[in-house]
């Protein structure tokens, strides 16, 4: 239970970064922290206490297995996360070239 609470705390730390930070890079880091908390949550769902690798074989103990499906989900989600982070960072670099700063308060062309 305590682990789920910690996951939630991590999510909130990330959300704090996204909402209250003024620096583009810090916003991206906040988003990344949120993402990791969700991955951890998914892994926790599939975790079985004392579970082993979910492979039926002679070498491993065929005891209680951990659920492999959330792990597959997390692997897919990490790949997606990589693409979004790469895109976000490249946009941040372009914005820096235009404005000479990462400060989001200086970028106010869009209003209304």
């Amino acid at each position: 239970m305590i682990l789920f609470v910690l996951c939630f705390v991590l999510f909130m730390i990330g959300l704090y970064g996204v909402i209250l930070q003024r620096n583009l890079i810090k916003i991206i880091i906040g988003l990344a922290i949120m993402e990791y908390s969700v991955y951890l949550f998914l892994i926790l769902i599939g975790y079985v206490k004392g579970g082993t690798v979910p492979i039926i074989s002679d070498f491993f103990e065929n005891g209680p297995f951990v659920d492999p499906l959330p792990q597959a989900l997390v692997l897919t989600a990490i790949v997606i996360g990589l693409a979004t982070k790469a895109l976000l960072l490249s946009v941040a670099i372009r914005l820096y070239k235009h404005y000479g700063t990462f400060d989001i308060r200086k970028m106010n062309n869009l209003k209304g």
């Binding site: 999510f11 959300l15 996204v18 583009l24 916003i27 988003l31 949120m34 993402e35 969700v38 949550f41 998914l42 769902i45 959330p70 989900l73 989600a77 997606i80 979004t84 895109l87 976000l88 946009v91 941040a92 372009r94 914005l95 235009h98 404005y99 970028m107 062309n109 869009l110």
Partner: peptide, 26 residues
């Protein structure tokens, strides 16, 4: 300039919504 700014905003909000959806799937 405008397009980059718009896409940054769109990506951050889109990213947050994706994470909310992913945790709902969890």
């Amino acid at each position: 300039k405008q397009q980059l700014e718009a896409t940054f905003k769109y990506q951050v909000l889109g990213g947050v919504s994706s994470l909310i959806i992913l945790s709902a799937i969890g």
